[in-house]
């Protein structure tokens, strides 16, 4: 039993290391796309600077807290960037017909995509981590995690958030089996997640209608919850509660992936031979 588990893990690990190598081969494109995603952060940094020159606090955030929120949430957002969007990967393989190679392999399709994603995510984490570190060092407003305990909780929570995010991305990817294209779906998903996950702005600042939406949807588990834990804005009890919610959502979304896979696989058309 243990042996077979080990063998399975080895297969998936190979996918991860393949992806890391692939990313490193195309590092220049990867690197610039990462830097480009920082432009938005800078714009918002200047906007907040201007806003806080008029006001001391907004919704209980002072300037330093708001900038910390901005940088941490944007770094988290960058981890799930354009380059490791699973739907992009799947859609490209559907278009070229290579998807058949994924389907005949004796490995779980969804798991395989997850481990592939992890490969690129590792590199994204390193980049994002460096950016966060640079901000902490050079911008005195951006704070470190509240305590070591909070930092550990943040990492854990960010991981659960990652699973949620990945599952949503995978569902989008599976949908492209039917839609024949991912562009619209990808950006639609991105816009909704940017807004309702709190990646752009703390959820408390959104219009009330959207706040209600955010409460009932899984998106705020992806960025808002980990960022709030990083900043130490929620109590220990609340951290436990929020993390349980994250785990539940991660589980639900992963089950949805399985369900979608079963439906979509019946409708797949393979191009070429």
């Amino acid at each position: 039993m243990y042996k077979s588990f080990k063998a399975t893990m080895l297969k998936y690990k190979a996918l991860t290391s393949c992806k890391i190598q692939e990313t490193m081969t195309f590092r220049f494109g990867f690197f610039t796309s990462f830097i480009a995603s920082l432009v938005q952060t800078f714009v918002m940094l200047y906007v907040w600077n201007e806003v806080f020159s008029q006001k001391q606090t907004i919704m209980g955030f002072d300037k330093s807290q708001m900038l910390t929120y901005l940088v941490v949430s944007q770094c988290l957002n960058a981890i799930y960037g354009w380059y490791n969007a699973t739907e992009r990967n799947i859609s490209a393989r559907i278009k070229s017909g290579d998807i058949v190679l994924d389907l005949v392999k004796p490995i779980n399709f969804n798991f395989a995509r997850f481990y592939e994603g992890i490969g690129m995510t590792i590199i994204q984490i390193i980049f994002s981590g460096c950016v966060l570190l640079l901000f902490i060092v050079f911008n005195p407003s951006v704070a470190t995690p509240t305590s070591f305990m909070h930092f550990i909780a943040f990492l854990l929570s960010a991981f659960f958030g990652y699973v949620c995010m990945f599952s949503i991305s995978l569902i989008t990817g599976l949908l492209s089996f039917v839609i024949s294209g991912y562009w619209g779906l990808y950006y639609l998903k991105k816009a909704i997640i940017d807004l309702l996950s709190g990646a752009l702005i703390p959820i408390g600042l959104l219009p009330l209608v959207l706040q209600r939406f955010a409460d009932y949807l899984p998106f705020k588990n992806i960025i808002y919850t980990p960022t709030m834990i990083y900043m130490g804005r929620i109590s220990i009890n609340e951290i436990v509660k929020q993390m349980s919610i994250q785990v539940i959502w991660a589980f639900i979304l992963w089950q949805l992936c399985k369900y979608f896979y079963r439906i979509m696989i019946r409708r797949v058309t393979i191009n070429g031979g």
Binding site: W183, Y187, A191, L195
Partner: peptide, 22 residues
């Protein structure tokens, strides 16, 4: 590719809407 096209239009509106809500 009708559905993809409609989603594409929706996506561009949503993206602009997103920065507008900010």
């Amino acid at each position: 590719h009708k559905l993809d096209f409609i989603l594409g239009i929706l996506a561009t509106i949503f993206m602009q809407g997103c920065s507008f809500i900010f």
